[in-house]
């Protein structure tokens, strides 16, 4: 039995790599739940309330999957990244929701930069709980962060290079836990790549740049992840041909922000909303006509 279970959802797409490197360095065994599949989805629907957003539902499904496969499940809580950079309230609540549902022990830390609770402190706390020495932790954390930063830099430069391509360029504006989830966004991305489209991801820009740019499009916005996402639109607005918004039903920040942004920008865009009943066939038709329209614009 592995020691730590990491659910592949929500936080995983922001911190998964750091966690993996950190635990590898400390020689702690971990298991990451597989890509969202039918089995997990069935578990998710049983474990979650019917009005929760699809991303939270699948996350709870992943937790259910891991329940008897590990000793601890890692579930952090993220409240804010300094002033005016809140996260969605689901990120605040998910630890308490899971705690009341499962008997498996939970590992958790809290990121709340307004109260000076950082990732570093959180990971130190977890490792200490698992019985590691301080000097080991320090080394492991340092290595993990360096490795993560290197990898991130590479991803960003690949993404930036795509902007120079001659193909039709489409920016995907969506939270990474939706974009890369095999049930929500993966099919869409696959379809686009198959149709010879250069896919640019909104989360693979430096957040320092996009966060500030996001404010120019939506002033006083205080959702950090949404700000990063829409900042990428401002960053590459002259270089892209179209935008695809993907959101899970019913995402709270997206319902406001995407509506506001689509009213303000003048780039062709479609808004795809995925719920637990939607099939890819329906989406395919919409994507096809969107691509046709973009092609038509080029020919004129």
């Amino acid at each position: 039995m592995d020691k730590i279970g990491i659910p592949r959802g929500l936080f995983y797409y922001y911190y998964g790599d750091i966690w993996k490197y950190f635990f590898e360095n400390l020689k702690i065994s971990y298991i990451v739940s597989p890509n969202t599949n039918k089995e997990i989805m069935e578990k998710a629907l049983k474990a979650s309330g019917d009005e929760m957003c699809l991303s939270l539902k699948t996350y709870l499904g992943h937790v259910e999957y891991l329940k008897d496969k590990c000793q601890y499940i890692l579930i952090p809580r993220i409240s804010n990244y300094k002033k005016n950079n809140q996260t969605c309230t689901n990120f605040w609540a998910v630890y308490d929701i899971v705690k009341n549902q499962t008997d498996t022990k939970l590992l958790h830390y809290n990121i709340d930069l307004e109260k000076r609770k950082t990732l570093k402190k959180g990971l130190y706390k977890i490792a200490k709980q698992l019985g590691k020495e301080k000097h080991q932790i320090r080394k492991a954390y340092k290595n993990a962060i360096i490795r993560y930063k290197k990898q991130r830099k590479k991803e960003i430069s690949i993404n930036l290079n795509k902007l120079k391509s001659d193909k039709t360029k489409i920016l995907i504006v969506s939270h990474p836990y939706n974009t890369y989830d095999s049930l929500i966004g993966k099919d869409i991305i696959k379809y686009l790549i198959k149709n010879d489209v250069e896919v640019i991801y909104c989360d693979k820009f430096s957040s320092k740049i996009t966060n500030k740019l996001g404010e120019t499009l939506a002033k006083e916005l205080y959702f950090k992840y949404s700000k990063d996402n829409i900042g990428s639109i401002v960053y590459c607005k002259d270089k892209i041909d179209g935008i695809i918004f993907i959101s899970s039903f019913p995402c709270a920040p997206d319902s406001l922000v995407n509506e506001l942004v689509t009213r303000k920008i003048k780039i062709p865009n479609i808004n795809l909303i995925i719920d637990d009943n939607s099939s890819f066939t329906g989406l395919e038709t919409r994507l096809e006509s969107f691509l046709d329209m973009l092609g038509g614009l080029d020919n004129d």
Binding site: G49, E51, M52, C53, L56, C88, T89, N90, A93, V94, D96, I97, N100, Q101, P250, A252, S255
Partner: peptide
Amino acid sequence: SSFCTPEIGAMPIINK
């Protein structure tokens, strides 16, 4: 109201 995210999160716990 429908789609109130924080309350949706609280409902399973309240029910418990």
